[in-house]
Nucleic acid binder design. Sequence first.
DNA 1: AGTCAAACGGACGGTGGCGTCCGTTAGCGT
DNA 2: ACGCTAACGGACGCCACCGTCCGTTTGACT
Lengths: 209, 209
Amino acid sequence: MRAVTDRLTHLRSDARDNRERILEAARAVFAADGLDAPMRKIARTAAVGPATLYRHFPTKQELVTEAFSERMRACYVVVDEGLADPDPWRGFSTVIERLCELQSRDRGFTAAFMSSYPGAMDFAADRGHALGSFAALARRAKEAGRLRADFTLDDLILVLMANGGIQAPSPAARVAASRRFAALAVQAFRASPDAAPLPPAARLAFVAA
Amino acid sequence: MRAVTDRLTHLRSDARDNRERILEAARAVFAADGLDAPMRKIARTAAVGPATLYRHFPTKQELVTEAFSERMRACYVVVDEGLADPDPWRGFSTVIERLCELQSRDRGFTAAFMSSYPGAMDFAADRGHALGSFAALARRAKEAGRLRADFTLDDLILVLMANGGIQAPSPAARVAASRRFAALAVQAFRASPDAAPLPPAARLAFVAA
DNA sequence: AGTCAAACGGACGGTGGCGTCCGTTAGCGT
DNA sequence: ACGCTAACGGACGCCACCGTCCGTTTGACT
């Protein structure tokens, strides 16, 4: 870690500048067009030559990882805040709603969070931690009798993947649709005396792009 | 319609043959790779030159429309069968489950059913009819007090789009995940004394690809 | 101010999908 | 059996994206 920091600090001023502009452009373009946006477009948006882009981020994975690390952290914050809620069910619902909202605002984020990109190893640790926290939250919500007992972590992945499939003519409409979807998901997860049993969960994590 | 039939019957035998093989190939490729599979691949699968493919189906829309019209009909059958069920709630649930299953087995089908392709006008009529039937079914399920009153047709679209976002390492896993998802959706739509109100529905229909 | 290497970006060759042209093949009707 | 034309498909030019090379610029250090 020390070495990396050194390397970044030792960058020439224009290089550090460009690097920052590239990351900003990547976030904007990925949010608008999804993860498969052409590298060129990001370079153009950053007002930078293709070579410069590739020099800073030799592979698209590295760019994605770097560009989304901030939002990824926001994601973990959401989970931790949910965990901190004294009412575990309210915490649980809020996490689902906020994660869906984060995703719906940013087309690329979904895929990134899924760590669809193999080799986005940098995320793995934090992701594992967030999933752990969420598992604890779910357990408490179950113990409080508010979350259905057959809820699985894979159901969270399922909902987030499904949420990622939602399209709409405008970003605003997509956010609205996603909001309703999240509310429906919460309804589905609610413990209820007359709830029907669910078919078995499928192992989902770590799908390749 | 008469003219079209004539034109098709008047096709030379090899042409009719190729046309059939192209449609078969298109179904296979679309199912495996989704709607954005390259035309070339379909031509190769059908053991046909590109020109032949384009002669039969000048635009991808036409090919999609033609290739999926059969499954599309299967889709309407599902809705009609649901409508025929004396128990409207069971009918409703079954329709959701079966539609999700149809979709999960065929990557291209989702997009096709959404009529994401503008200009797939041929579907419009049938689609309208199916949506009408489903609306009637939903109304009856509401009147029976089993379906939540704030359910909208757009919620069906929402669920189907979301279902389309589900990915998994293997087709089998995707079907399993989709099955569980459908069950969750049904739970969410169930009328319940302690159900929370939902955020407003968003107009979704006819999203461009 | 002068030097030097770090950083830049225009330009290139390669790949893959697209839709069309046109010389060739082979069904069909006489 | 024969000719006519519908139908075929290889080959072409086009365009977008990819990743890299290399001549030029410019920040940093003395």
